[in-house]
């Protein structure tokens, strides 16, 4: 089933949604992302793969405004993105986190409603005096949040605290929260990490349904079967640089990709990979 949908869409190369050109991110002496250019078109699912420490999450952080790239620029719908996560969200780009960052002590519904913050206008005066706008908007956003929970399959968990949700549900809730920001492009950072095969299949199906809503998806993942099933195009990052970018089957069979993951007998640059892991973790903690 998934294959036919993918094929149907791979023909369609819509407008360029996200255009990153020559993005470079340095932490002190270490170049985590080096001269990466990447385009995502509307209605397309793009995979971002690479060994640990290749700079995938750092690139995500650069794209979503958590980091200001050392050089290069990120454009969204042709305009340069402001380096502020909140403004990036307003433009229409939302993300999930590799280590789930839900609001743990809020219910699932509330989490999704927080996602709607940038699309609602109720201000302090409306809220204090309970003006009609407050009421109208609260009802509408509750309704919408319920729809989104339903969409990701969590309708029964609306009033469950997100910390009490099972791991897989937390990942799905994070996606629902990101969808609540009404994005045109959704960035998923390892959406199936820690999931069992069945949950992974559900996630795959969910991402196809998201694409069918007309959203583009950029997804980081280590599960190769998942990524090559899902993506119209795959970009492989190694040590901060784009190794190869292209349709799934091309990337899948490229000997350099296999080498980057498994290593070849001649190369002795193995230690470089764990070393590069460090700043990525640290950077996220700092931010």
């Amino acid at each position: 089933m998934s294959q036919t949908i993918t094929d149907g869409h791979s023909v369609d190369t819509g407008t360029v949604l996200l255009g990153a050109s020559a993005v470079t991110m340095r932490f002190g002496g270490l170049t985590a992302v080096n001269n990466v250019s990447l385009n995502v078109h509307s209605g397309e699912i793009v995979g971002l793969i690479g060994p640990n420490g290749a700079g995938k999450t750092t690139l995500f952080n650069c794209l979503t405004g958590l980091y200001r790239p050392t050089s290069g620029e990120v454009r969204f719908l042709g305009e340069v993105l402001p380096p502020k996560p909140r403004l990036v969200v307003r433009r229409g780009m939302a993300r999930t986190f590799q280590n789930i960052r839900l609001f743990h002590n809020m219910t699932a519904l509330e989490n999704v409603m927080v996602g709607m913050y940038s699309r609602t206008q109720t201000n302090a005066i409306d809220a204090v005096f309970r003006l009609p706008r407050h009421r109208r908007e609260e009802l509408a956003s509750t309704e919408r949040a319920k729809e989104l929970l339903d969409f990701v399959g969590l309708s029964k968990a609306a009033d469950t605290l997100s910390r009490n949700l099972p791991y897989g549900d937390q990942r799905r809730l994070e996606i629902a929260r990101a969808l609540a920001t009404e994005p045109k492009l959704l960035l998923l950072d390892e959406p199936t990490a820690g999931m069992n095969p069945q949950e992974t299949r559900q996630a795959e199906e969910l991402i196809f349904r998201i694409r069918d809503l007309g959203l583009a998806v950029l997804v980081i993942e280590h599960d190769m079967r998942f990524i090559f099933n899902l993506c119209d195009r795959v970009c492989c990052l190694v040590r901060g640089e784009v190794l190869i970018e292209g349709p799934g089957e091309v990337v899948q069979n490229d000997p350099r990709v296999i080498e980057a993951y498994i290593g070849s007998s001649e190369t002795d640059d193995e230690p470089a990979v764990p070393a590069a892991d460090e700043p990525e973790q640290k950077g996220e903690a700092d931010a």
């Binding site: 909140r86 969200v89 939302a94 960052r101 609001f103 509330e110 913050y117 908007e137 920001t181 931010a287």
Partner: peptide, 20 residues
């Protein structure tokens, strides 16, 4: 909406910012 935003800030300010 404001109160929800405040709770979100308390829980995880970065995530709140990243959610708009």
């Amino acid at each position: 909406r404001i109160g929800r935003g405040w709770v979100a800030i308390r829980e995880d300010e970065l995530a709140a910012e990243a959610m708009g």
